[in-house]
Design a protein around this nucleic acid. Structure first.
Lengths: 341, 341
DNA sequence: TTGAAAGCGTTACCAC
DNA sequence: GTGGTAACGCTTTCAA
């Protein structure tokens, strides 16, 4: 095995090196870089040449320290799923337009790591955070001291009450449940998402409300996780019941995929024997065979508007605290009226 | 619409505030934070209390400037796909163990943005970069001055020759093609990935080599992109041929999904009429119905080992320049012998 | 065990 | 137009 020696890394050139090289002051070099209109064009040209020759790049860390701003935004995401990355795309677009850089900080739904990223930003690493959903309040470690400018995306953050751009998951989940009820279903199951995710809780709540309003039993409500595997396992449990449900509202499209697998594996058909409703309208729900009926969440816009709001906050412009975006149902091939009404 | 006023943000406490509060020197406060063993326990306790009370957090930017290190790694990813995020998970795990923070920087396969992230790191924003695949050489803007410590993951970066941890995509793609050949297929198609992605090019090359070695025609090799939509469109073109292929090697699982959709839509069956081979072994290939035969790429290990290597480089320890990890074929439900041999 | 002060690489104010 | 220099918030050497 051939080992390489560590590469010799010469010290990067600083503003002083450039100034010394040209026998001018560092102030002039600095101005040539950021405010060239204040200088004689000839001077700017000389500096540019020397900068090129020495390979000088301004040290961003020093710049940040002096300026007190980084123009970086941390996007804190609980998990790496395509759903969250659709939100991220919207954020990225807005950031690009507004002169910010964004980086994604992944927490794996761990409140401790979430706290660490908040700390980094509070300590000057970035100007603000976009919190894409988050951990449950009760699982969080006690009292962070002071939060950096933050906007919640996709979901309110109960307890901290950050400004938000979100959808009403309770209402949207109720809407999905009502779609099933209106088709004529009475025994409707729900497979929920991760116990720690507030979004999962809110979707479950919407299901319970809609069922209660229709006077239906909620005995088919089972816990799950945001993954096809968990969806499949939960559905298998549901199928083992003496009296099976005729429809299931899954807390996400991924869960729906798992549920459909389980139903097919049991020799039943979708939606012939059992209807399946997803949530999120991920690309997966359009691609899957059969295509999945689901609830559309305007992920891109959510991200775009959240970043825009954060910019306003940082610029100390007025903003609306809580912004709600609309959702709607997308009926595809996995929901239909029950066989025997 | 109710507008909130900008929140009044009091200046965060600095080390000086704490020192003044206790009438001690900033040096002592600094030591109490990072080298408490050098101080009288009573002093440390007093400082701790004041820090708590004032809500002081050391400014990381200032710390970084002084120390010349951030302990942050930028993970530069070309696209937000689950495939890349499996790699990211491995990186994260290693970083956690080794005391680094990682953030994901997304380029959307844009060489300009890739360059910007490199610049940020070269200017001190992070200690190094993990380049997960990258843009093609010819599409890159000319001469960046000096690269920060970088490790290529998943693929070599031709032209810049960073140390790497990767797989041999040419060999792996040839392996996949040979699987189809060994099953008895002769008219084998290939749908390739994004033209700008080196990985797509290498997989295509592997296909061409294997076909040439078997003396088979490569007339069914068509361009595509790493998405189900592109896979579907490409497959439709292939199906319109006078003589159809009996098997197709897709450059990714996502492309395979699209191809399968097109085949089914044409009233044909997989693998009865046409076999489909994927690549990457994403979770999708296990979840899809039918489950997709594919090439397994050890994404997690790739990420883990790349981060470990980068740590060695930063610590100026010796390391192996180019590390190759093995791949293998996973035969599932989409490949079989052709109908009429 | 603690304090004074230099210095990390910038920017911006105040002179000239 | 350009230069000198203080300051951003921290760590660390040197002295005491």
């Amino acid at each position: 095995m051939s080992m390489s020696a560590p590469p010799l890394q010469r010290r990067p050139a600083t503003i002083k090196d450039v100034a010394r090289e040209l026998d001018i002051s560092v102030a002039t070099v600095s101005r040539a870089m950021s405010k060239p209109h204040l200088l004689r064009p000839a001077t700017v040209a000389r500096v540019r040449e020397a900068v090129e020759r020495l390979g000088y790049r301004p040290n961003l860390v020093a710049q940040n320290l002096k300026l007190g701003s980084t123009r970086i935004i941390y996007v804190v995401v609980p998990a790496m799923s395509l759903f969250f990355f659709d939100v991220f795309r919207g954020i990225e677009r807005a950031a690009l337009e507004q002169g910010y850089s964004v980086v994604a900080a992944h927490t794996g739904r761990d409140p401790v790591r979430e706290g660490e990223y908040f700390d980094q930003v509070a300590c000057g690493r970035a100007d603000g955070v976009l919190l894409v959903s988050s951990a449950r309040l009760e699982t969080r470690p006690p009292h962070q001291h002071q939060y950096p400018p933050t906007v919640s995306v996709l979901e309110v953050d109960e307890g901290r009450e950050f400004p938000s751009v979100r959808v009403d998951h309770v209402a949207a989940a109720a809407m999905a449940t009502n779609h099933l009820i209106e088709l004529g279903h009475r025994r409707i199951a729900h497979i929920s998402g991760n116990a720690l995710a507030p979004m999962a809780e809110h979707r479950r709540r919407g299901f319970l409300q809609a069922m209660a309003a229709a006077g239906l039993s909620t005995e088919y409500c089972v816990p799950g996780e945001f993954s096809p595997e968990a969806g499949q396992a939960a559905m298998e449990i549901l199928l083992a019941r003496a009296v099976r449900p005729t429809a299931v509202f899954a807390s996400s499209d991924e869960i729906a995929v798992g549920a459909i697998r389980a139903i097919k594996a049991a020799g039943l058909s979708v939606p012939g024997d059992i209807s399946v409703m997803g949530y999120e309208d991920q690309r997966l729900s359009r691609i899957y065979d059969p295509q999945i009926s689901t609830v559309h969440i305007p992920t891109f816009d959510l991200g775009y508007q959240a970043m825009t709001k954060l910019r306003r906050i940082l610029a100390r412009e007025p903003y609306e605290h809580d912004v709600l975006l609309p959702t709607h149902i997308v009926v595809r091939a996995t929901t239909a009226a029950p066989k025997q009404a």
